[in-house]
Amino acid sequence: MTDHLETLAGRRIAFHRRAGQGPGVVFLGGFRSDMTGTKAVWLDDWARDRNRAFLRFDYSGHGASGGAFQDGSIGDWFQDARSVIEALTDGPQVLVGSSMGGWIALLIARTMPQKVAGLVTIAAAPDFTEQGFWVGFDDAQRQALMATGSVALPSDYGDQPYLITRRLIDDGRDHLVMDRPLPLPFPVRMLQGTADPDVPIDWAMRLLDHATGDDMRLTLVKKADHRFSTPECLTLIGRAIDDVLA
């Protein structure tokens, strides 16, 4: 059953919450993904089998939540995540961040470390609006973005193109994590596929090098793609969470 939370910012956030023992697990999805995706549903079953508290939700403009996707930004989605974690979880949580969700999880870790028991990232994409979109734009795309406020990019994950707005780029620059110290004082497990067309291995290596913490590991999975949703990859996610909880 889908429930909804009205945030202080006036956004209506859809969520599924499973009761269980703590520390709970919170899944943070990716750009234009939702809580009915393979990893989110698999983790819900994983949590049920272990009587582990679990929370999955849709950012505003995603899935069953209110709002339009093209109106959103990293800051909005970070605030959505912060609101649901503050309102719907008890004590420190293990954050599982996929792609953009990895960036959101790092922002949570930076601003409210007391709520983080551990971190598992899956093809984490910190600062992707800058090091992915903006760096990848040609001159014509940059000019179009500045002149009209948006530019459309083809998507490998559906028929509809991505509409990238100037607000998304500008707001992303206000929420960068790779340009300042990034302490992660809890267990961190990073998972990255070698065949990921969206997040290069170099991003994972740079994050590992940039962040500071006493218990950080990066696992590279040969031939795994960005979805990281094969049975073998899903099993690795579960093992990484178990490792953090241990």
Results as ranks from 00 to 15, higher is better:
4 H>D: 08
74 I>P: 04
93 Q>P: 09
162 Y>G: 03
104 I>Q: 10
42 W>R: 15
216 M>V: 15
220 L>C: 11
246 A>M: 10
114 Q>C: 00
102 G>D: 06
35 M>N: 03
122 I>P: 00
75 G>Y: 04
211 A>N: 04
180 R>N: 08
239 R>Q: 14
216 M>H: 10
149 G>I: 10
98 S>W: 08
96 V>G: 07
177 V>N: 11
37 G>W: 03
162 Y>S: 09
56 R>A: 10
199 V>M: 09
234 L>K: 08
23 P>N: 13
226 H>A: 09
38 T>G: 04
85 I>G: 02
65 S>Y: 12
140 A>P: 01
205 M>L: 15
158 G>D: 09
227 R>C: 02
51 N>C: 10
213 G>C: 10
63 G>Y: 09
167 R>G: 07
232 E>R: 13
235 T>K: 13
151 V>R: 04
200 P>Q: 04
88 L>C: 08
85 I>R: 04
95 L>D: 02
157 Y>G: 11
103 W>C: 05
9 A>V: 02
12 R>Q: 14
191 L>R: 07
154 P>A: 00
209 D>E: 14
6 E>L: 15
20 G>W: 01
144 A>N: 09
188 V>Y: 01
231 P>Y: 12
155 S>Q: 07
40 A>M: 12
75 G>W: 06
109 A>K: 04
40 A>Y: 10
91 G>K: 05
157 Y>K: 14
98 S>D: 08
122 I>L: 12
187 P>I: 00
24 G>N: 04
40 A>I: 05
92 P>Q: 00
154 P>W: 00
83 S>F: 10
109 A>Y: 07
38 T>R: 14
53 A>V: 13
166 R>V: 01
140 A>I: 11
154 P>K: 00
2 T>I: 15
49 D>W: 02
44 D>F: 13
9 A>H: 13
75 G>A: 06
63 G>R: 05
176 L>F: 05
98 S>A: 14
209 D>M: 12
61 G>Q: 12
67 G>V: 00
228 F>V: 01
1 M>G: 15
212 T>C: 05
61 G>F: 11
125 A>R: 11
73 S>N: 03
237 I>N: 05
98 S>C: 07
65 S>M: 10
188 V>P: 06
131 Q>E: 03
46 W>S: 07
145 L>F: 05
86 E>R: 14
96 V>M: 06
106 L>W: 07
26 V>T: 00
235 T>E: 13
103 W>G: 01
175 H>F: 15
181 P>F: 14
32 R>D: 06
175 H>Y: 15
155 S>K: 02
124 A>F: 09
